[in-house]
Amino acid sequence: MSLDASKWAWEIKIPTKKGGALKPLKKLVLLSLADRAGEDHCAYPSMSRLVDDTAMDRKTVLKIIDELIEDGLIEDTGERKGKTKQVKVYQLVGVKGRERGPKMEPFKDENTDLKGTNNGTVPTTEQFQQFHERVPTIPSKGPNVGTRNLPKNLPEESKNKKDWLCFKKLREEIYLADPDLDFEYLMTASWGDREKRAFEIYNADKNLCDVLMNFHFADWLIHAYRTKYSKPAAGQQAKAGDSKPQHLTEKQIAAFAQKLAHHSEFSSKYSEPGDSYEKLAAKIAVKLEDPAQAKKWEKYLKQVGFTGTIAGEAA
Rank of each mutant, 00 (worst) to 15 (best):
A55I: 07
A9T: 00
R49Y: 01
S190G: 07
Y202Q: 01
G97C: 06
S190R: 11
R58N: 06
V122G: 00
F131W: 06
F131H: 02
S2N: 05
E126V: 06
A34Y: 10
Y202A: 01
K299F: 14
D163Q: 05
E70D: 12
R49E: 14
T77E: 05
D53C: 04
K239P: 00
D205I: 14
P232V: 07
A282P: 04
E200S: 12
P102R: 12
E157C: 02
P139F: 06
Q129H: 14
Q236F: 09
Q91E: 13
E11F: 08
D219H: 06
A37M: 00
G20F: 12
N149I: 15
V145I: 11
P155Q: 07
V145L: 10
W8S: 03
T84I: 02
Y225V: 04
E75L: 04
E110W: 09
A9G: 01
L25N: 03
L25T: 07
K162C: 03
H132D: 01
E313W: 11
Y90D: 00
I14T: 06
W191A: 09
L25D: 05
P45R: 11
G312Y: 14
I14D: 10
T249Q: 08
K81G: 02
L248P: 05
E67G: 07
M213I: 07
E250L: 07
A261P: 10
K152L: 11
I14G: 00
N149D: 13
K287D: 13
K63E: 01
K141M: 04
E278V: 11
K228S: 09
V29W: 15
R49C: 11
T121Q: 06
K81M: 13
K228G: 03
M213Q: 03
A5C: 03
M187D: 02
G82Q: 08
R226E: 10
N207T: 03
Y90I: 05
P139T: 00
T54Y: 08
Y185V: 14
L30Y: 14
K196V: 09
N119M: 01
E105Q: 12
S243F: 08
M1E: 02
N160I: 12
R148W: 00
S264K: 10
D178P: 06
